Simulated scan of single mutants.
Amino acid sequence: MKYAKSKNDIVNEYIGDLNDEIAPLFLEIRACVLAAGPAFNESIKWKNCLVYATTKNHIQTVVGKGKVSLIFFEGTALNDKYGLLEGDGSKARTMRITSLDFNKTALKDYVKQTLKNEK
């Protein structure tokens, strides 16, 4: 599996341990997030979740059977013009991705909004 290595060795270990069925989807999502949010630091939190953060946590990835869920911690502040965010909590919203032909434009937009809302 070829991918841009993280500065965090624990993240690289996490990626290396992903099963072959989900790894391509996870890596495509990761590349999309990092392209839209190059300021992010990556870390593993809560034992098995990759988290994208700056001075605070912004996005958490959760790998499930056949899907990767992205939890936007401040998701209610995002303009969801694509209608892809789910949830009814007071702050967080989730984008569930199940195939490599996911809406990359939407994901990049959500990531950019997330970073813009930090300020």
Rank of each mutant, 00 (worst) to 15 (best):
K2W: 15
K2I: 09
A4Q: 13
A4C: 06
K7G: 08
N8E: 06
N8D: 05
D9A: 15
V11E: 06
V11Q: 04
N12F: 03
N12P: 11
N12K: 01
E13H: 12
Y14E: 01
Y14F: 13
I15Y: 01
G16D: 15
G16I: 06
L18W: 02
N19F: 10
D20G: 08
D20V: 11
I22L: 04
I22S: 02
A23Y: 04
P24M: 15
P24Q: 09
L25F: 05
F26G: 04
F26C: 00
L27E: 02
E28V: 12
I29N: 05
I29T: 03
I29L: 13
A31W: 07
A31R: 13
A31H: 09
C32M: 05
C32D: 03
C32T: 11
V33R: 02
L34C: 05
L34E: 04
A35C: 06
A35S: 15
A36E: 00
G37Q: 02
G37C: 06
N41P: 03
E42V: 04
E42C: 00
E42P: 03
S43T: 08
S43N: 14
I44Q: 01
K45E: 01
L50F: 06
L50Y: 01
V51M: 00
Y52D: 09
Y52Q: 08
Y52C: 11
A53P: 05
A53I: 09
A53Q: 10
T55Y: 12
T55M: 12
T55K: 15
K56T: 14
H58N: 13
H58E: 11
I59R: 01
I59E: 00
Q60G: 09
T61D: 02
T61W: 00
T61H: 02
V62M: 12
V62D: 12
V63G: 00
G64F: 05
K65S: 14
K65C: 04
G66T: 06
K67Y: 14
K67L: 14
K67A: 08
V68L: 01
V68R: 00
V68I: 08
S69M: 11
L70H: 12
I71E: 03
I71Y: 01
I71Q: 04
F72D: 02
E74T: 14
T76P: 12
A77I: 05
A77T: 11
L78W: 04
N79E: 13
N79D: 14
D80A: 04
Y82E: 02
G83E: 11
G83D: 13
G83Y: 07
G83T: 01
G83V: 10
L85R: 10
L85F: 10
L85I: 11
E86Y: 07
G87V: 06
G87T: 08
G87F: 06
D88V: 04
D88L: 08
S90T: 15
S90R: 13
S90K: 15
S90E: 15
S90V: 15
M95Q: 09
R96I: 12
I97Q: 05
T98Q: 11
S99R: 10
S99M: 07
L100Y: 07
D101S: 14
D101A: 14
D101P: 10
F102W: 04
F102T: 09
F102G: 11
F102K: 10
N103L: 08
N103V: 12
T105R: 09
A106R: 01
A106V: 12
K108Q: 15
D109Q: 04
D109P: 07
V111Q: 00
K112L: 10
Q113P: 01
Q113V: 06
Q113K: 01
Q113T: 07
L115A: 03
E118M: 14
E118G: 13
K119I: 15
